[in-house]
Design a protein around this nucleic acid. Sequence first.
RNA 1: CGGAUAAUAGCGCAGGGGUUAGCGUACAAGUCUGGGGGACUUGGGGUCGGCGGUUCAAAUCCGCCUUAUCCGACCA
Length: 585
Amino acid sequence: MRMSNMFSRTLREAPSGADCKGYEYLLRAGYIKQLGTGIFSLLPLGFRSITKIQNIVREEMNRIGGQEILMPVVNPADIWKETGRYYSIDKEMARFEDRCGRDMVLAMTHEEAVTDLARGEIDSYKRLPLMVYQIQTKFRDDPRPRAGLIRVREFTMKDSYSFDRDQAGLEKIYAAHYNTYFRIFSRCGLPCIAVASDTGMMGGKVAHEYMYLTPIGEDTIITCDKCGYTANRQVATFKKECRKQEMKAIEKIETPHASTIDDLASFLGISPEETCKAVFMVGSFVNDRTGEEHDKLIVALIRGDLEVEEAKLQHAAKANDIRPAHTEEILECGMVPGFASPIGAKTEKFITIVDDSVAYSNNLVAGANEEGFHFLNTNFGRDFQGEVADIASARGGYSCPVCGAPLTSSKGVEIGNIFQLGTKYSDAMNCFFQDEDGRQKPVIMGCYGIGIGRLLACLAEEYNDDSGLKLPIVVAPYQVHLVSLVKDTAIAEKIYQELEDAGIEVLYDDRKESAGVKFADADIIGVPIRITLGNRSLKDGNVEVKLRGTGEVTHYSIDGLKDQILEEIRKEEKKIADNIVEKNL
RNA sequence: CGGAUAAUAGCGCAGGGGUUAGCGUACAAGUCUGGGGGACUUGGGGUCGGCGGUUCAAAUCCGCCUUAUCCGACCA
């Protein structure tokens, strides 16, 4: 590629709003261009990198038996109504009517479409197992896109779907994905960890997320350095020490102005662990069949020193969605914010979820539902009831649930996830096969995603310095950047031709620009191997070869340059290949 | 969806009721220069986001709308 003919240009200054380095360089180097909030075009450089990532993904998916397909972005709403997600998913999914007034959606994932395909294909156990995948555009109307390609609305995703006759088969393909994902990310040069995760709206039971750890990440990951426990904070657990005592008689006391746990604890001269806090949320519950929706107050009871993890609470309450409650909604149920508990409240009007920290402690101080009053010695089971669950948020410093060592909290970006779906979709959409025993059984499914654009964004974040990007050669848009600084272009043209003929991907800076401009552009685009033709080395019949990654400089004779460059490419590729990660579940 | 901020040349910014709206950079032409965003000269590029209002006069003040960014809620 001749730079004189390249579609994109570099920018001296970052467009305003580019808040993280990787994003800034992707914009300034001309890899991507924003069209709207969370909507980006890929320019030639970005598209080349994305294509390389996709090819790595393809190779690895094919390696574990995946068959590539392509499903439509536009889906008739009917299949989404079959699974109920037409109703349970809110504004995240774009919807429209076609010219005949049929409900249509822009598929934000493809469980419905693939299950429709599968029910037509799979009739016998003899056809199982199967696994298909696609690399395709998704649109999710995210309420808060940010950080360039990290969190967008339209994006490219690799999604694969597995079909098995039994759980053992599912676990096998799940394990294959588990390892393959490590191979994919490490083949791109991106370090990551797998964490136990929430299944969210996908349903199913077992799930892992692949996290690239970075301060700009929005997910919080809880890890144990000692035993290797890792989990997304949404599902992370920890050891709770609970105070077991003889139950004492409940007693109402005056606690003026003590409407927060801190005030209450200091007023009574006790620690927050001796109190019970009520957190109010309103859950939205949607009927999968009819789409009817109703709200109900959820009262989460948790020990005063802990915080509620909303994702856990939502699960425990089986709500489609939860939001903080308004004061009136709390009052309506007979509770007084600041001095609230379910004791004496209209318990039929709300759902009570009790964290096990409260259920297994005794004699906690709780609200008396009267301004300025609390109860001493309240006890779960005796004074109030509710469903017991773990709804507490794990924090750094808490005790590891496995080994008891202190947990660490870090930030990460989710670049992939794998789910064991089970029969949620096959049941809902009648995707059955006939087993050896002659019986109809639902196909057991799994689904597995990788955010391709987000992967590039993370790579840009991982591989940059003060001058620009320095992506690994396996994902860089070109392998070699040929910079000619001499007037006479004959030598450069000859080298360019020779390298191209050898199948090397060359970005050739044939522009009439000053040396400084060419170097600065080369640095920001970050092609891994830079060949410089200048009088300085040319007078000895040499060219200068500089590696973007390390800054290492070598001089090679023009004769036999092609072979030297091929060798450099091999060495760059080896840096990545030597560090391919394999991990078994 | 709440809160905040903003929208002036491709990009980054200044101007803040009164001639023809500026600066840097980018762009075009020319001369010089030629190993780290080089110098000089000349030039082209703007319905100042949109609609409406106030005014003799609006890029500037006011209102509404749209769009974007950040924070929060949220996020498969």
